[in-house]
């Protein structure tokens, strides 16, 4: 790890000491920021290092969330068992669909993943065992730590995602991904098994995103297709990533926290034009800091 990376790592660890100082409101804002951080860091592996924008990455948020919820509700499995299974199911699903899906590039790939997200949302809304459009109620968490547990879970997930990003940034594995991002045909002719590396990268993104969805499901105790396959969440992940700086380890964190705080402030003061301001923000980012706050 480099100097900056170590600093960020310790800052993240230090965040674990914050909760006693926080009001319930700020605890919630920070938890949301951490969730967005984990999601942006996940997407960063795929978009930032591999060059594939999975605009419908929230599909995996839904898969992870629903798998976790169904395992808890229907099979009576404890959360600590259901959550990792949710993550793994999400990652395996990604591994399965990656080879055909990732023949598409750039906006074609982005739109197809979005279609996947919307289609899965519709499917879940129309199946019986998923609770249909009515969704699923989960038991309220009553273990040690109370609701703070979700703050720590998202913090852990963010640290995990951060370390994965650092690994990609510094390893030969990451070199393969970057080579694919720069020029896939050249990478392939230089000996990189592009299908394999793209699939693994896609599935790493799906693992973190799925775990994030699982934690979220238990946190809000009620999930339905609209909240778990929400296209607005996809937009938020991409805005956070663009704002912070794509393809850097610090960018996604910076972007996620800035966006979430900004969003809270705007939401409180201008509830009616909140969406407009967010849209303006995207335009401004593209015009003024196209490479994000943290430049590559």
């Amino acid at each position: 790890m480099g100097k900056y990376e170590r600093l960020i790592f310790f800052l993240l660890l230090a965040m674990g000491l914050l909760p006693p100082l926080l009001t319930d409101y700020w605890e919630r804002v920070l938890t949301l920021s951490l969730m967005l951080s984990s999601l942006s860091l996940a997407q960063n592996i795929l978009l930032g290092y591999t060059g594939y924008p999975a605009f419908g990455c929230v599909a995996f948020f839904g898969i992870g969330g629903y798998t976790t919820a169904l395992l808890m509700k229907d099979l009576g499995l404890p959360f600590w068992v259901s959550l990792p299974i949710g993550g793994v199911v999400s990652a395996l699903f990604a591994l399965l669909i990656a080879p055909p899906l990732m023949r598409l590039k750039s906006h074609y790939f982005a739109i197809t993943t979005l279609a996947l997200q919307l289609a899965l949302g519709e499917l879940v809304a129309n199946l019986e065992f998923t609770g249909g459009a009515q969704g699923i109620n989960l038991p309220i968490y009553v273990g040690p730590g109370g609701y703070l547990i979700f703050f720590y879970l998202f913090l852990l997930l963010t640290i995990f995602a951060f370390l994965l990003n650092v690994y990609v940034e510094r390893s030969t594995f990451g070199y393969a991904l970057k080579a694919i991002r720069e020029d896939e045909t050249a990478a392939e002719t230089m000996g990189v098994n592009t299908v394999l590396f793209k699939s693994v990268s896609f599935s790493m993104m799906a693992l973190i995103t799925g775990l994030s969805g699982g934690v979220y499901a238990y946190w809000i105790t009620y999930i339905d297709p609209t909240s778990m396959f929400d296209p607005l969440l996809s937009v938020k992940i991409f805005v956070a990533l663009l704002l912070g700086g794509v393809g850097t380890v610090a960018g996604p964190l910076l972007g996620a926290f800035t966006l979430e705080f900004l969003s809270e402030v705007l939401w409180g003061r201008f509830p009616k034009v909140h969406g407009v301001v967010l849209g303006l923000l995207i335009v401004l980012i593209v015009l003024i800091i196209p490479r994000g706050i943290w430049r590559r």
């Binding site: 070199y175 970057k178 080579a179 720069e182 020029d183 050249a186 000996g191 990189v192 590559r296």
Partner: peptide
């Protein structure tokens, strides 16, 4: 390649290291 296909955002050295490692 006829139209060069380098890994443009990577360094010159990295451009050589990657094929060495994988190919």
């Amino acid at each position: 390649f006829q139209i060069t296909r380098l890994f443009s955002n990577l360094t010159v050295l990295e451009n050589v290291i990657i094929p060495m490692h994988y190919g």
